[in-house]
Amino acid sequence: MKTIIVNEFIKNAFSQEKALILRKKIEECFSNDDKMVLDFSGITKFTTLFFNFSTGYIISAFGPDKYNEKISLINLSPLGQSTYESSYKNAVEKYKPNKEIEKKILEVIKNSEE
């Protein structure tokens, strides 16, 4: 298991630019199939934007099951935790397949075979 100490390369979790730095580190671990802990010690400023572009992107790309299997977060302040949870819930909700669209796609496929 790899521990990523976030404040070694960013000092706040406030912008898209900072999120992309963290995302790159996360993607490197994913490509090595490593499990990881994101340690947010010393980070006090958070925005939903930051989590949307870092962890939210990973959820969208790999799915919530794979994300939960691979990543855990520690040492988030109460603000960081609530901001992260909001972003996480949004990413998971957007990842869920839309059953209505799925039904229409299956109908199109079925009709094209007839």
Rank of each mutant, 00 (worst) to 15 (best):
K2G: 00
T3Y: 01
I4K: 05
V6R: 00
E8W: 00
F9Y: 10
A13I: 01
F14V: 08
F14I: 10
S15Q: 04
Q16E: 11
E17V: 09
A19M: 06
R23T: 03
R23M: 06
K24Q: 10
K24I: 02
I26Q: 05
I26T: 02
I26L: 05
E27K: 02
E27L: 07
E28A: 04
C29L: 12
C29D: 12
N32H: 08
N32I: 01
D33E: 14
D33K: 11
D34K: 12
K35C: 09
L38R: 02
L38T: 01
D39G: 06
S41A: 07
K45R: 07
F46D: 00
L49E: 13
F50W: 08
F51K: 11
N52H: 10
F53T: 03
Y57H: 11
Y57M: 09
I58Y: 10
S60G: 11
A61L: 09
A61S: 14
F62R: 13
F62T: 04
F62I: 01
G63I: 05
G63S: 11
G63A: 05
P64C: 05
K66Y: 11
N68T: 09
E69N: 15
S72W: 03
S72I: 14
I74A: 06
I74R: 15
N75I: 02
L76V: 03
L76Y: 14
P78F: 09
P78C: 03
G80H: 06
G80C: 08
S82W: 10
S82D: 10
Y84A: 01
E85N: 15
S86M: 13
S87R: 06
S87Y: 02
Y88S: 00
K89F: 15
A91V: 04
K94S: 02
Y95I: 01
Y95G: 00
P97I: 12
N98I: 07
K99A: 09
K99C: 00
E100D: 10
I101C: 04
K104H: 07
L106G: 01
L106I: 08
L106F: 15
I109V: 14
N111C: 06
N111M: 12
N111D: 13
S112H: 13
E114N: 14
E114I: 13
E114D: 15
